[in-house]
Amino acid sequence: MSNIIESKGLSKTYNPDTIPVHAVNNVDLAVEEGEFTALVGPSGSGKTTLLNLIGGLDYPTGGKVMIEGVDITKMSENKLIDFRLKNIGFVFQAYNLIPVLTASENVEFVMLLQKTSKSQREKRAIELLTEVGLKDKLDKRPSELSGGQQQRVAVARALASKPRFILADEPTANLDSASTENLLDIMAKLNKEDNMTFIFSTHDQRVIDKARRVVTLVDGKIVSDTKK
């Protein structure tokens, strides 16, 4: 299998001139297509920073990130935005939906940015929300949905742009057990049936248990990398 993501000597140091904090320290990581990978580690170990670097949300202070052979650390900010739109899906801990749009409109929004036609957007939004079990919540705004439902809308939104992989930063941190279980099932199903690559940071043992690969970070360094 080919590597979809590859980092080499990836580092991110905050306050390099005063009191340096090495959030990510010389990380080499390769992720193959179709993996279901969990980044684990204690708070402050660099999980979110590593996800931000892999997702092109931040620039490293050293090393590089290759996405399907393209070094994204060399891209300008504007090119990175476009690259993210076409290649990466994001799921955030706090859901981060657009509060003034309905579930369906939130999913459509990413496709709008991709200039997809209205009819195609509507069709795909319904398909995706049906896939995550929210067919009856199309016209509900985030404030009318539970946390678990909002996170499922966020997953549908992440899938809407047909990304190469999805990065999820502690996606279950704000969810109850049932919602967590439900979300994990959906993510696992997408991974298994659509071969969608997932990389997620988590503290949650139930999530770790579902992952097929677990990468453990401590002080910004990979201390273990286990494939099940």
Binding site: E77, D82, R84, L85, F92, A94, N96, I98, L113, Q114
Partner: peptide, 16 residues
């Protein structure tokens, strides 16, 4: 701020 951060993260460019 968080909303704008999210919009830019998912691919909304600066002119938009």
């Amino acid at each position: 701020q968080r909303e704008f951060g999210m919009l830019m993260a998912i691919g909304m460019n600066k002119p938009r």
